[in-house]
């Protein structure tokens, strides 16, 4: 599987293998934080950044630390620690150097630690056996795909806010249906790029 070029991997993970729409990763925050475009955008940006960097770190840790010592069974816990530690450090740095950015992005950072998408990408990377450069582009592409999906969903949700939706379907119900239709639209891209 080593021969997929990073560029194809980048585009493929945005369109054909979108994190939320075809792998259901990061659903919790995808539904709960998509009421406003502004907040959705902030969270999306944070996800892109954290996902790219942690995927790279996790790749290095996995192949240089876990595999040589035969500690693969600790993968989950090590990945979680790496992600949590990185987010914590990032939060401190942003808080120290850019209070404005912290105001906009800060509240999303703790949310990201438990975002399934971040851990999911790291695990997919291990299962699919990507190299370091591939992993970085895979992380970046998946992050961009997630951002694209959440911003689009937030835009649609803001538009239908005034509509007369059946009462039991309001909130989560209609959101799930919108996501379903978005997933159908993304099926149109299938076959354009080959991911696995």
């Amino acid at each position: 599987m080593g021969e997929i070029s990073p560029f194809v991997l980048f585009l493929g993970s945005i369109f054909t293998g979108n994190m939320v729409l075809s792998y259901f990763l990061g659903m919790c925050s995808f539904i709960s934080v998509s009421k406003e475009i502004k907040t959705a955008n902030g969270l999306g940006m944070a996800v892109i950044f954290v996902m790219t960097v942690t995927t790279a770190i996790n790749h290095v840790v996995y192949h240089n630390l876990l595999v040589p010592f035969g500690l693969e069974y600790l993968t989950y816990i090590v990945f979680i620690i790496v992600i949590a530690a990185f987010v914590q450090v990032l939060e401190m740095i942003i808080d120290r150097f850019s209070p404005t950015l912290y105001m906009n992005l800060g509240i999303f950072l703790p949310l990201i630690t438990v975002n399934c998408a971040i851990l999911g990408i790291a695990l997919f990377m291990v299962v699919r056996n990507y190299g370091l450069i591939q992993s970085i582009f895979f992380g970046l592409g998946s992050g961009v795909g997630w951002w694209l999906a959440i911003v689009a969903l937030a835009a649609i949700r803001m538009r239908i806010r005034e509509q007369d939706i059946p009462v039991p379907l309001r909130g989560a119900g209609i959101t799930l249906i919108i996501i379903g239709i978005m997933a159908l639209a993304f099926i149109g891209f299938s076959g354009v790029f080959k991911l696995q």
Binding site: L176, I181, A183
Partner: peptide
């Protein structure tokens, strides 16, 4: 396909 999971869950929720 993945899309159907969303639809089915939405209907159950409804």
């Amino acid at each position: 396909m993945p899309a159907s999971a969303f639809f089915v869950l939405a209907v159950i929720l409804w």
